[in-house]
């Protein structure tokens, strides 16, 4: 009897805890934290991040339903059928109808998830997402170099071309324009070349919901777009206007040291920053 109660309670506790932990994610285990960072994912500010978050919630709803059904059934059966009794169990080898039912329903749910994400994934990663209406490639804003254990961001300077004398480098801090002059939400794209000098690294910006490995020997075109409304909301109660860049692929003993920041500026300020950096490039300090 003791064991019966214990096991049932354990399972029920897991069920309740599983639900509570997702519903209320700011409790004592976390320790003190200001509003920006909880044990949930950080605020989202990219043009596509909302789609990822929505997909997350869609899956969350489905998974919660399945979790409650299965864990509930498990907990209930443990309590119900572990009672001491003399009669035999139900003699049954299965049910064809039930099998069909619980194959078809999850299959349908999984297919819904699978197909609902395809367009987002294509918009995130396909080459066509980095072209303009005429199929021409959009110009590159900046070259992201990963190396052990540093991020370097190389800008083409005023002439827009790499490998010329007005290129300038920024260590640690990636600065990108908000593209607030561009009215079309879907066109607020900044194109980057992602490269590695030595081993695999991964360019991860939690706030932008973006991650891509930097593979040595490969040049990858990637794009990031910032949703200015979301950004304004986030910036409203933050003193610091920049966000973490993290290396997400093991790159050696100093993996944990490989950090950077991304700062998003309104277009006008971005232009000013480029001027400043150019002045610094040819400065004598």
């Amino acid at each position: 009897m003791l064991m019966r109660i214990t096991v049932t309670l354990l399972m029920a506790a897991l069920l309740v805890f599983g639900l509570v932990s997702w519903a209320d994610y700011d409790f004592w285990l976390m320790g003190p934290s200001p509003s920006h960072y909880t044990w949930w994912w950080p605020e989202e500010m990219s043009t596509l991040g909302q789609h990822a978050d929505n997909l997350f919630w869609l899956i969350m709803v489905m998974v919660t339903v399945m979790f409650v059904i299965t864990m509930g059934a498990l907990t209930y059966s443990i309590w119900k059928f572990s009672a001491k009794r003399q009669d035999k169990a139900v003699f049954s080898h299965g049910s064809h109808k039930l099998e069909l039912l619980w194959t078809a329903i999850p299959a349908a749910m999984l297919l819904v998830i699978a197909f609902s994400q395809m367009s987002t994934f294509a918009a995130m990663q396909f080459d066509s997402s980095m072209e303009d209406e005429n199929g021409e490639e959009l110009p590159v804003l900046c070259e992201i170099w990963a190396s052990q254990f540093d991020w370097r961001f190389r800008y083409p300077g005023r002439d827009g071309r790499f490998g010329t004398n007005d290129d300038f480098e920024s260590a640690y801090e990636l600065v990108i324009p908000m593209r607030d002059r561009e009215p079309d939400h879907d066109k607020k794209k900044n194109i980057f070349l992602l490269r590695s000098r030595d081993v695999l690294h991964s360019f991860f910006v939690p706030h932008l919901r973006f991650k891509r490995d930097a593979v040595p020997g490969m040049t990858q075109r990637i794009w990031l777009g910032v949703d200015d409304e979301q950004l304004a909301e986030i910036m409203a109660d933050r003193e610091d206007k920049s966000f973490d860049i993290i290396c997400a692929e093991l790159c050696g003993w100093g993996h944990y040291k490989m950090s950077g920041r991304v700062r998003v500026l309104p277009d006008a300020e971005y232009e000013k920053w480029v001027d400043e950096m150019t002045a610094l490039q040819f400065g004598n300090s």
Binding site: Q148, F149, D150, A171
Partner: peptide, 9 residues
């Protein structure tokens, strides 16, 4: 740059 000395910014 390109040594094991990273930035500590």
């Amino acid at each position: 740059y390109t040594t094991a000395m990273p930035n500590f910014a």
